[in-house]
């Protein structure tokens, strides 16, 4: 069977070519901005995990005699706020809230939104219309207004923030996933699986979802940035986590009253939000390019 040997050779050359092609990670770090984003995200996660080790002071200890100190004064790295709490330590601890809310809310939205989107796209027909019209209804509310409404209904607290932002994230995921599923379900390999006698559950979770994953991951990454902003916004409006828990949004809120006396509070918490969101978005952009086979960097 010389022809099989010939085919064997073709396979080999194809493999070599594949090895030469950069892996996903290589592609990512080749993109400078994405690499920058990745590093910042990594540092942020380290900060959140080891917050007690990194923070120089207790974030909630008040000392009115040391209120509103400037940068570096009396060993306070970024100064103190109006209650004399160390801003640096509060920002370090605040990263925990931001990351937890960002990731958990997106997970919540992604799981529920994906399930709804898959159901709508895969089964189509009336179910599709009902689900998607409901999602359009949710979409009609501005994201932050929806979150505020949900917060006032649910009441304050970390879990409720996550649920509120998560629900606000659901329609986006439903729409992205539905679009993907509509494309994938027409593939011949789905028909093949049906002809083998597979049940819907198997087709959806073994074939449809894994093949729709790439855009979902990119969308989720970008959504984390959005969720962090939403959390900050909610905290800024006093609807987020309860004080005295440090959160970037609440530091910003406290800081806005002392912009002239001590701009450090608002500046550094605002910068933290800015850098974090920017990094995640840059990383998300890089990820999208790296996952898109048609884009050669």
């Amino acid at each position: 069977m010389t022809s099989i040997q010939a085919e064997e050779e073709i396979v080999k050359t194809m493999e070599d070519k594949r090895k030469k092609e950069q892996s996903l990670f290589r592609k990512l770090i080749k993109n400078r901005l994405a690499a920058f984003g990745l590093i910042v995200i990594f540092l942020l996660i380290i900060t959140a995990i080891f917050a007690p080790l990194i923070a120089t002071h207790d974030p909630n200890t008040m000392d009115v005699t040391k209120a509103l100190l400037g940068v570096g004064e009396q060993g306070y790295l970024l100064g103190t706020d109006n209650f004399g709490r160390d801003i640096f330590s509060r920002i370090v601890y605040g990263s925990r809230i931001s990351l937890i809310v960002g990731i958990a809310a997106v997970l919540f939205g992604a799981v529920i939104g994906s399930l709804l989107g898959v159901a709508a796209g895969y089964f189509g027909g009336k179910l599709d219309s009902v689900i998607m019209r409901f999602m359009d209804g949710l979409f009609a509310f501005p994201f932050i207004l929806l979150a505020i409404t949900l917060m006032t209904v649910l009441g304050q607290g970390l879990i409720n923030v996550i649920i509120a932002i998560g629900i606000a994230n659901v329609p986006g995921f439903a729409r992205v996933v539905r679009g993907q599923v509509l494309g994938v379900k027409e593939s011949e390999f789905i028909e093949v699986t049906r002809s083998l006698g597979a049940k819907h559950r198997r087709i959806i979770f073994q074939h449809v979802l894994p093949n729709s994953l790439a855009p979902i991951i990119v969308y989720a990454t970008m959504s984390v940035a959005g969720a962090i902003i939403s959390e900050a916004a909610l905290s800024f409006l006093g609807l987020g986590v309860q004080p005295p828990t440090a959160s970037w949004g609440s530091i910003l809120k406290d800081g806005k009253d002392f912009l002239v006396l001590n701009p450090n509070m608002a500046t550094f918490s605002g910068l933290s939000i800015l850098i974090t969101v920017l990094s995640i978005n840059l990383f998300g952009d890089g990820l999208r390019d790296a996952l898109d086979p048609k884009m050669k960097v």
Partner: peptide, 14 residues
């Protein structure tokens, strides 16, 4: 059982 036309589309790439 069935064998389909397109050998590239009928196998789940993942």
């Amino acid at each position: 059982q069935m064998v389909f036309q397109d050998p590239f589309a009928s196998l789940d790439p993942r």
